[in-house]
Simulated scan of single mutants.
Amino acid sequence: MSGPGLLLDIDRLSCAYAGQPAVRELGLTLRPGELGCLLGPSGCGKTTLLRAIAGFHAPSSGTLRLRGADALALPPEKRGLGFVFQDLALFPHLTVADNVAFGLHRLDSGARRSRGLETLALLGLQDLAGRYPHELSGGQQQRVALARSLAPRPDLLLLDEPFSSLDADLRGRLRDELRALLKRLGIAALLVTHDQEEAFAFADTVGVMNAGRLLQWAPGFELYHRPATPFVASFVGEGRFLAARVIDRRRVSTALGELTVGSDLPFTVGSAVRVLLRPDDLMPSDDGGIEAEVSAVAFRGAETLHTLKLPDGTALTALFPSHQQREPGARVRVRPDLAHVVVFADEDVG
């Protein structure tokens, strides 16, 4: 997985936590300025991996290279990284300006103050330099923690669920502001979260983890439309698995009719398989298609999520424009409209 121009290069890295495997044979890369995200359920190893990159946790095997050089033997302070903790870890006895300047030991006092104030201004905090953490709102404290991590101008920022304590609106605004700032400064980042919306909105590349393994490392669009495993398909977005049978190398038969696959299937003719159907893969149809019964509806503003029951009892979901909302018990005709037909072996789908 090594290559030229990589900022972070991890290969077959394994870590244990409390005597149990936490990260298993994991590999990923980040290029300068790239924004990445680790997404997965609680306990999947995301934070352990982040701490291993930072130097706070010693891996049991594998390699970790920063800027082309082996980083495993380096202490955290020698790795040149910024780290934002989930609990912020601000110093209560220091002013905002002193918190931000805390890690700038290599600069003289004048340069430290100048860099600190410059960084505060980047995050709109210049008027709060003389205040103490307890005098700030939660959002302001979060900005101070970000400013402190950015003040040394690291080329890689590690973020451990930094927005989790904020309300949804503030979390979204701060996330978007941070993404724009990092892009402007050319600083790469690796964010840990369990929030899919946050992952897709912030990152260029998203990795889905489960049980210590990185199942897929790809742009959000690819994770959603071309998931590598049934777990990725289920964890990212909404979807149902439709029973199907292989007709030939490029076609499968389903309750919705025959579907054509974009590449050769690795299954023998007649094999039982499952096709992933996202809610946006089914469209209402005035003529043709297949009739289904609406069993439940969930209003979502511009769209309504309909749970549908096909004649054979299969349950699927479909998004209709809200002005086309049907009521439970109504019958509606639908047709598949799949840009990408994703097929898994029947036995791989739990």
Rank of each mutant, 00 (worst) to 15 (best):
T47E: 01
D264P: 14
D248V: 11
H323Y: 12
G139E: 02
L310V: 06
L66M: 10
S114K: 15
P76A: 06
D155H: 09
L319I: 01
A58S: 14
L38V: 06
L8Q: 06
L120E: 08
V342M: 11
D70Q: 14
A147C: 09
A101C: 12
R226A: 15
D281N: 13
Q216W: 13
L123P: 01
T268L: 11
S60P: 00
A58N: 06
P266E: 03
A73H: 14
I290S: 04
G270M: 08
Q86M: 10
G220E: 11
D281M: 01
L215N: 08
E222H: 05
F221M: 00
F163R: 12
G27P: 04
A151Y: 03
R65A: 15
A296E: 09
L170R: 14
L120D: 07
F241L: 06
L277D: 04
E77C: 02
T268G: 02
G130I: 05
W217S: 07
F85Q: 06
S253F: 01
A180I: 00
A298N: 03
L185E: 15
L66V: 09
Q140G: 05
L104Y: 04
G82K: 06
S164I: 01
V273N: 02
F299W: 03
P4V: 09
P162L: 13
G207V: 09
P227G: 11
A201P: 10
L157I: 05
D167C: 10
F221I: 01
M209L: 15
D127Y: 05
A272D: 14
